[in-house]
């Protein structure tokens, strides 16, 4: 969008990121002495790739699921439950006893009137433009095709995820993300098919610069509800700007007009797959603006914790 104006900023950004890397590298290197971490796979042998997959290896169907499979996996469940116990470490049981006066954390919102204005703007934009266009598009283009288009754009944006995994010292995730990109771009036909998720059980690692900055201890600052982009914070807006330079779309389609067109299409395609979500959210909320602001705050806090 602002590709012409930003060359100076991009230089500054590069400087900033390399500085970040320098600062964070020694801190992270100590806790990450896993020999597998950060290794680029030497060949594309699927077996080996599954080996490279990091974290808890879960069997997607192995855990007791709905009614029919209850009894059979009781033991497995217990074992899994114990293993996952650690995952609760950062989720406090509190407030165990209800404390009326306790203030639950939230995000500072000095721009509320302006943010509310743009909330209504985006709301109208959705119901008057984005929704009808996406619905029309969805009627013409079948769902499997739209899912592939979505996959393509997700795969295309993988540099953002890889770099931010690295910046956060998540070398295993970075490696997973790299494996995903290689497999999906080749076997998955330029990312149209998410082979990595379906066959290798490696889901995308949703990391962005806002989260990286959050990991480094930066708070969200203030809440900003952007026109078109929607809810964000000061920190996450800086992150969005930085991620802009990691998004290949902005290099593949540098001309502002075409760039906007491609991104508009990406949005329409994505929206066509989630129609009804925003409506449900609004139906449940008494003050949709406050509900969205808080949901954004809580959601980002959780993402940064991971």
């Amino acid at each position: 969008m602002r590709a012409e104006k930003v060359s100076k900023a991009s230089l500054l950004w590069l400087l900033f990121t390399s500085l970040l890397l320098l600062v964070s590298a020694p801190a992270f290197s100590e806790e990450n002495n896993n020999p597998d971490a950060g290794l680029v796979p030497s060949s594309l042998d699927l077996e080996q790739l599954t080996e490279l997959r990091c974290g808890v290896k879960k069997s997607p169907e192995g855990i007791g699921i709905t009614s029919s499979e209850n009894g059979a996996s009781g033991l497995g469940l217990q074992r899994l439950a114990r293993k996952e116990e650690d995952e609760f470490e950062d989720i406090p049981l509190e407030p165990l006893e209800f404390d009326e006066e306790e203030e639950i954390p939230g995000i500072y919102d000095p721009l509320e009137p302006l943010n509310r204005f743009f909330f209504h703007f985006n709301d109208k934009l959705y119901f008057w433009v984005l929704k009808p266009v996406s619905q029309g598009y969805g009627k013409v283009v079948p769902k499997p095709v739209r899912t592939r288009v979505k996959n393509f754009f997700i795969n295309l944006a993988s540099p953002i995820r890889i770099v931010n995994c690295l910046l956060q010292g998540k070398f295993e995730s970075a490696c997973n993300e790299l494996v995903r990109t290689i497999v999906n771009t080749t076997v998955g036909a330029l990312g149209l098919e998410d082979v990595a998720r379906e066959k290798l059980d490696i889901p995308p690692q949703h990391e962005d610069l806002g989260q990286t900055l959050g990991k480094l201890g930066l708070g969200p600052g203030i809440f900003i509800n952007w026109p078109f982009f929607g809810p964000s914070s000061l920190r996450d807006s800086v992150g969005m700007l930085g991620d802009y330079f990691l998004d290949p779309i902005n290099y593949l389609v540098p001309s502002t007009k075409e760039n906007l067109a491609v991104k508009g299409y990406r949005t329409v395609n994505k929206t066509s797959l989630t129609i009804g979500e925003y409506e449900k959210f609004k139906k449940a909320a008494l003050d949709p603006y406050v509900s969205m602001r808080d949901a954004y705050y809580q959601y980002r806090r959780e993402q940064i914790k991971k």
Binding site: A81, F88, L93, R197, E198
Partner: peptide, 28 residues
Amino acid sequence: EKVLYLAEKVRGRHALVKVKILTKEGTE
């Protein structure tokens, strides 16, 4: 959608139960 029952934590009269909902598209 499938529901995977992952973990629970009990302390006295309070508890947490962690599950994961798996959509047909593979979103967790």
